[in-house]
Design a protein around this nucleic acid. Structure first.
Ligand SMILES: [Mn+2]
Ligand SMILES: [Mn+2]
Ligand SMILES: [Mn+2]
Ligand SMILES: [Mn+2]
Lengths: 234, 234
DNA sequence: ACGAGAATTTAGGCTCGCCTAACTTACTGC
DNA sequence: GCAGTAAGTTAGGCGAGCCTAAATTCTCGT
């Protein structure tokens, strides 16, 4: 019987550490599309050992940022969600600013934002956002939460799941792998682009796409990282 | 007899931590104008207990960033100086960028830069510098080291030491106290401004200054934070 | 030359975040 | 229902940076 009673929900005023902010972002994302964040998923996403995640998750629970039931995964509390969205806003505003104001390519901003998101003040984020006209999405098409933590989380279909013969519009792409981003850019698979899925090989085989006047084939793994909406949608 | 033999000068490739970078900056400044950095000075500058400085300084020595003789103060090695100047460049480029590109006041940039200097990549710093025309000084008049670590360290006279009756040009002001910066700004004591010292009260009393058509009195402590050059100098 | 007081270091402890190894719980297929 | 496996947790440790209290060493003034 180790420390069993925790003093959960202590009133936090101190700023969160960078690791804590990164955990909250990861938990937010897994919870959004799996209902709860699994220890192993978090570990893999952050490139740390699962045991380390167990430890951190308990500390997050002590701080009232997360609700946690042993072996059952973890969910953000209201405070945790607020903190996660704040960090996500920072990350995406920074990405957008680097591209629009400083000439970064969309493949180079993620790593930079991953560090700056923990160091920038709210004032700086607001000034960056204002300087580029209050962007609504980041360079990869991800929605930017508002200052007060509102975010448009409409789920999107992946290009991998589109029906053969349909034309869709790219809404958003994965932003973590710079090599993939360069490749997507070369193919013209950018947010806003119209893509027609002309063919799908069986057994998770490659998809044949028509983008503008060009044609290409991509693997199912790549296609799953491209989110699309019906071509006519706003 | 604790760990006496240290493995000094291990080849460092890993990035330095934020605390380490802040120590190196502080040591650089004290060494520049006192020959060596004293434990207590570093401690006070960083708002840390002197004992903590002793510990860190030994770690810095182990990393080959500093040469250290017990009870005798600390000096930067070539590697340490390189790292310090890199951080100083980052700090000052960031300050200049925030003022010139994002509309910050000169009293608000120091705290922001103090954090961002540890998170920004070299690429970001270069892009910022390019975006505002490769500035040579920061908003407080401090010289910005070049990419390759060259810096103009010409020592300047303080306004507190100027001769009565002389007219001087403000070169640089202290940048850490936002309140002082707002006051200096109100007085017109900005880099580039011409100031005539018209009177000095005895016993470290207030100085009477003429700035443009205005006149004011300032304490010796404030005047010592304002560095000046002969009015005609480049 | 020497003792007081200032400066510095050492000793011992703490938290955070990470690790590996070993154990426990949950899930799955039969 | 039950064993085997995957997922998760606990145990025990480590380094970085910080702290306070207790030495130690240096510096000065006389
Ligand atoms: Mn991050
Ligand atoms: Mn992004
Ligand atoms: Mn700093
Ligand atoms: Mn400055």
């Amino acid at each position: 019987m180790t420390a069993r009673k925790r003093k959960a929900k202590a009133a936090r005023a101190e700023p969160l550490t960078a690791p804590v902010e990164d955990y909250l972002k990861a938990i937010y994302a897994f919870e959004r599309d799996s209902g709860a964040a699994a220890t192993n998923d978090i570990a893999q996403h952050l490139s740390i050992a699962p045991a380390s995640v167990s430890g951190m998750v308990q500390r997050l629970a002590d701080q009232g940022l997360v609700s946690y039931e042993r072996y059952r995964g973890v969910r953000l509390t209201a405070a945790g969600r607020r903190a996660a969205l704040r960090t996500i806003r920072r990350h995406r505003v920074i990405e957008a600013y680097l591209v629009q104001a400083l000439g970064y390519g969309w493949d180079g901003v993620h790593a930079e934002a991953e560090r700056l998101e923990h160091a920038a003040s709210d004032t700086l984020i607001d000034r960056m956002a204002a300087a580029i006209g209050e962007p609504v999405t980041d360079p990869h098409g991800a929605p930017i939460p508002t200052r007060d933590g509102t975010i448009d989380e409409t789920p999107h279909q992946s290009l991998a799941d589109a029906a053969v013969g349909t034309t869709t519009r790219v809404v958003r792409v994965g932003d973590e792998d710079p090599g993939m981003l360069r490749y997507l850019d070369a193919l013209g698979l950018r947010p806003g682009a119209e893509v027609t899925l002309t063919q799908r090989a069986p057994f998770d085989g490659p998809l044949t796409l028509a983008i503008g006047s060009a044609t290409c084939q991509v693997g199912a793994a790549l296609a799953s990282r491209v989110l699309v909406a019906a071509a006519g949608d706003d």
